[in-house]
Design a protein around this nucleic acid. Sequence first.
DNA 1: CAAATGATTCGCT
DNA 2: GCGAATCATTTGG
Length: 216
Amino acid sequence: MNVYSKLEKIKGDFMIKLSKDFYADETTKVAKLLLGKKLVHICSGERVSGRIVEVEAYKGISDKAAHAYNGRKTKRNEMLYGECGIAYVFFIYGMYNCMNVVTQKKGEPEGVLIRALEPCEGNEKMAEFRFKKRYEELSKREVRNLTNGPGKLCTALDIDRKLNGADMSGSEIFIEDDDFNSFKIESSKRINIDYAGEAKDYLLRFYIKGNPYVSK
DNA sequence: CAAATGATTCGCT
DNA sequence: GCGAATCATTTGG
């Protein structure tokens, strides 16, 4: 399977943008493969990006924690039912956005929640979006809290519902493989899904062992 | 440090 | 109305 659509040369390094095919696979497998990849949003022509260090798999119809559990389909979650490789961005707790990438085949409403990033490029823009300050002015605590949670990373990368349905292989928001592979994967229960019955105990959260930007 | 609490809006029942 | 795939702040040790 050719999972790569494009080879791009940026700042002297080879970056490979993940194509739609990458996301067509089984959700848990895609979730683990996304660890170490780089999420990029082009903001006013500038690359703002972070390495994916924490994800959760949501297994759709059979998963009590998933928005599409039992085939539930609404205006809000309809993106999950479409083609894979699409962004599903939803608004939560009155204030925050969370971002998923849709996986598997059309009609299989599954996805991977991006839960934390390690900042890579565009630190000045991230500092502005998150704290309305210059990067140099951030406290140590603010630097550590730039992108270490699903709502935080959306604020830092200026991701909101205007990107719901965006093609993740397009030119505005996408994920790159830059061959970062030197890490161990840990798994755990998913976060803040106490309502989900037996599904709350599934080990569908994956993160890079020891990475300081994994959410607390 | 950990635990508790308030913020604030949308989508669905 | 109510609860939500969250976070910042405060409080107490």
